[in-house]
Design a protein around this nucleic acid. Structure first.
Lengths: 146, 146
DNA sequence: TACATTATCTACTTGTTTGATAGAATTTAT
DNA sequence: ATAAATTCTATCAAACAAGTAGATAATGTA
């Protein structure tokens, strides 16, 4: 399961993705539309900014905007930023690797090969799902209404 | 990432799997071989018993044994028992489903289809990885030594 | 029967993380 | 100057993780 923070981040990115290339969108606006506590969302957007996924501008008419194309922001990226490793155990993580304290030799470990397979399974599907993927469904919805 | 509890459970099940069909193995034995705090392991084995994955016997010569074949205990089973849902969000979970409070209609939700794909990706690989899968690697190791 | 051995059960502890809230400071357009 | 927006830091309550403690119950053996 992902944290609320991560879920909120994805929702916010999708909102920003809908207005990609069309200027800034304010925290208040996203907060109201997605039912995210404003103060909490501020922190999230700030983290996204520090991770160079969004850009911002202060003052009147300011707000946030995507700095990358929605196709270039994956669920894996967002998950790693807020919730850390995708792998089930640190010793097979690509981005958050940590050595096992108990295991003597990684090459002889009976757990790693299988945990690597699981990581790859999860990583692949999370990497190929992007903010754009979600937006595709939003498009379908508006077509339906017509 | 999985909890230590879940990781310990898998390790314990693998140990029991090595002696599958050969009687009982004691907590103390597993605890020492896998470097798991004994008292903590007791709780874990008890939970596994309540989930009908292992069986036990008290008194001298007692201990724990697998009640299912190692091929029939998947990482998904163990993960669900200790860490809960495999899905990233409750509203697409098969075993721990919870309705979204914000989302009006699940059919029109732009997030569900993608989150279902991710769940299926993770679920598939975790379901097909069993205690037996880990044991295959242990066999290879002992062959190597010869 | 007494005893040692093993699992069973319940409660507790300690530290960390999660999901927020609060408020002051800073930047910017008008 | 002022209003509107982000930025930054601190704080908080509740839940969770990882582990400890101790009493109880079942069982085989001497």
């Amino acid at each position: 399961m992902m944290s609320m923070k991560c879920k909120y981040a994805i929702k916010a990115l999708v909102r920003l993705g809908q207005r990609f290339g069309q200027g800034y969108m304010q925290t208040k606006d996203i907060s109201e539309k997605e039912q995210i506590p404003k103060k909490f969302l501020e922190q999230i957007l700030l983290e996204l900014k520090h991770a160079r996924m969004v850009n911002s501008k202060q003052g009147l008419g300011g707000g946030y905007c995507l700095v990358k194309h929605p196709k270039d922001i994956s669920v894996a990226d967002v998950y790693r930023l807020f919730d850390g490793a995708i792998a089930l155990v640190p010793c097979v993580s690509l981005n958050f690797y940590e050595k096992c304290d108990d295991c003597k030799s990684e090459n002889d470990c009976m757990f790693r090969p299988e945990f690597i397979k699981i990581r790859e399974g999860a990583r692949e599907v999370m990497s190929k799902t992007s903010i754009h993927s979600f937006l595709q469904h939003a498009k379908k919805q508006s077509k339906k209404k017509k």
